[in-house]
Design a protein around this nucleic acid. Structure first.
Length: 507
RNA sequence: GCGGCCGUGGUCAAGCCUGGCAUGAUUUUGGCCUUCCAAGCCAACGUCCCGGGUUCAAAUCCCGGCGGCCGCACCA
């Protein structure tokens, strides 16, 4: 067996069809993952949950914009300038360093990055800068551009880039969105879509891929009226915060605070960011990560993005360390102003007092693959020889498995009949008659199917079936005619396994 | 991109050092059996990451590539 949890889950994912490395038959290509049937269904359920938490409001509008953007969009946004790195490597100890930072350390120069590649190479040579670690000679820096570049139009001509985040689509469509939101603030634009980042060295499977789905929301508000009218909904939610100043003091243990207190104490700069941090905690808890394994860590000034005034990463404790599952950035009016300048289009909106202003933005941003990974890892349980995925019932790819107890005496026929009924009712189901009943329950457990329905010899006589619960292995007996109502109750979260029928005791 | 370790059926592993019929467990599928938790029996499907070299002979040795993990850097 594999030694660590990640290997175990990767093996399970491959075996059962959650996900696997892409381009396998051609030897593989790092940074790409393909989702299988179960994975696709799980993703769909996670996005459904995300929508429920983040977009189910009248003034949150969802859009679906193109992935390839003309260069001008990213010139205006600042990405072209900020997405280049000049990296240099020590020829002796092979460590990599950022060339511009080395120059800034050794000279009075500032913002060296903006001077361009030739200047950086020249400065590195002129000042005879050595490896800060071992003092060895450094190679000439190489330019790293982590956006995918392409040409728009089959005959070329116009440079285009794949978007590395969905946010710019929301900013460049701000005016349309504002119009559709009937020109009222606050409102938000949200988007679930693919983005691409040409990572230098992607690793750890799903946690970092070159192409992934992002779930992002931009909330626009008036900085003179920064109140979040929905804050009360999450104000009592407790979160673990690791603030900027705590990290500056070397503090590693977060403080537990309510959203309300975090706002009142000034730990979170805007009510809107605080609101979404609260919702984020609920969302992540909802898909199975216990609160004590979550924290919100503030970005230090030097790791913050070029647009951000304050960013909190929502991190989840995984077997391999902390994993960032979402980012909560206060982007101020940086982006709208950038596009106002770039496109020469007025991005201001009207206040009641007749003045105009550019709205401020708060952005919660989620990588779908990372929610997926966090949900899987926290659902995983080893019980004896068995793997169990204790996925929440509203996340499980297959909701119900239907089995005949044995494959004779017309039990399979009856089981298929019930299976068909459930499918017609809209449930995601699986029919299984292969192997012993225990083996089939084990299969259901391993892919995280919460309920198994078994047709046995009592079914014909009493018109009842048994329902087995994945987590407790408890079984209850239920009349077939009550199934629709009971299952509806269970999957809406109203009923638990013992509410579904009469408990069966077995020796 | 650099360095270290690694790559064997669907999955996990032994074999590699010391070249000689690819091995085991498990999974999957079908059958038998079977009145509830991976039972048993029978059968089947399916493998040495890719390319080149050395050799009578390469999973094994050598070279290159690709991929994975870890460290450096990157992760907006």
């Amino acid at each position: 067996m594999p030694q660590n949890l990640q290997d175990t889950i990767n093996a399970l994912a491959k075996r059962r069809g959650y996900y696997w490395p892409s381009y396998e038959i051609y030897g593989g290509q790092s940074g790409y993952i393909t989702y299988g049937d179960l994975g696709t269904k799980l993703k769909r359920n996670i996005t459904a949950q995300w929508r429920r938490h983040f977009t189910a409001r009248q003034n949150v509008l969802e859009i679906d914009a193109p992935i390839i953007n003309p260069e001008i969009v990213f010139q205006a946004s600042g990405h072209i300038a900020n997405f280049k790195e000049h990296s240099t490597q020590c020829t002796q100890c092979h460590r990599s360093h950022r060339a511009d930072h080395l120059i800034e350390d050794k000279t009075p120069l500032e913002n060296v990055e903006a001077m361009g590649g030739d200047a950086i190479t020249r400065l590195l040579r002129e000042h005879k800068i050595k490896c800060p670690r071992c003092g060895g000679p450094l190679a000439d820096p190489t330019l790293i551009l982590t956006m995918f570049q392409t040409e728009i139009g089959a005959t070329g001509g116009l440079t285009g880039y794949a978007r590395p985040e969905a946010a710019q689509s929301m900013f460049i469509n701000f005016k349309r969105g504002h119009q559709h939101a009937r020109e009222r603030l606050p409102f938000a634009l949200a988007q679930i879509g693919k983005v691409m980042r040409n990572e230098i060295s992607p690793r750890r499977g799903l946690a970092r891929t070159r192409e992934f789905t992002i779930m992002e929301l931009e909330l626009f508000f008036d900085p003179q009226n920064p109140r979040c009218p929905w804050l009360h909904e999450v104000e009592d939610e407790t979160v673990n915060l690791l603030t900027e100043s705590m990290q500056a003091d070397g503090e590693k243990t977060p403080i537990e605070t309510t959203i309300r207190d975090a706002v009142d104490d000034g730990l979170i700069l805007t009510e809107w960011n605080a609101y979404y941090i609260g919702v984020s905690k609920r969302f992540v808890t909802g898909y199975g990560v216990p609160p004590e394994k979550q924290r919100f860590r503030a970005h230090l000034p030097d790791e913050r993005a070029h647009y951000s005034a304050q960013t909190y990463d929502h991190e989840v404790q995984m077997s391999f360390g902390w994993l960032e599952v979402s980012g909560h950035a206060y982007r101020t009016d940086y982006d709208l102003k950038s596009h106002q300048k770039g496109a020469e289009v007025d991005m201001t909106v009207l206040r009641e007092d007749g003045t105009r202003f550019v709205p401020h933005v708060v952005e919660p941003s989620f990588g779908l693959g990372r929610q997926f990974l966090a949900a899987l890892e926290h659902a995983y349980e080893r019980r004896g020889k068995r793997n169990i995925l204790r996925l929440p019932r509203d996340l499980a790819p297959i909701q119900i498995q239907v089995n005949p107890l044995v494959t004779r005496d017309s039990l399979p026929e009856k089981a298929r009949e019930i299976h068909a009924t459930l499918q017609e009712a809209g449930y995601t189901t699986q029919y299984d008659q292969s192997g012993s009943i225990g083996r089939r329950y084990a299969r259901a457990d391993e892919i995280g199917t919460p309920l198994s329905i078994t047709i046995d010899y009592d079914t014909q006589d009493t018109q009842t079936i048994t329902i087995r619960d994945r987590d407790t292995w408890t079984q209850v007996r239920t009349p077939i005619k009550e199934l629709p109502e009971k299952l509806q109750g269970y999957f809406s979260g109203r009923l638990e396994i013992l509410d579904l029928g009469e408990k069966i005791e077995r020796d």
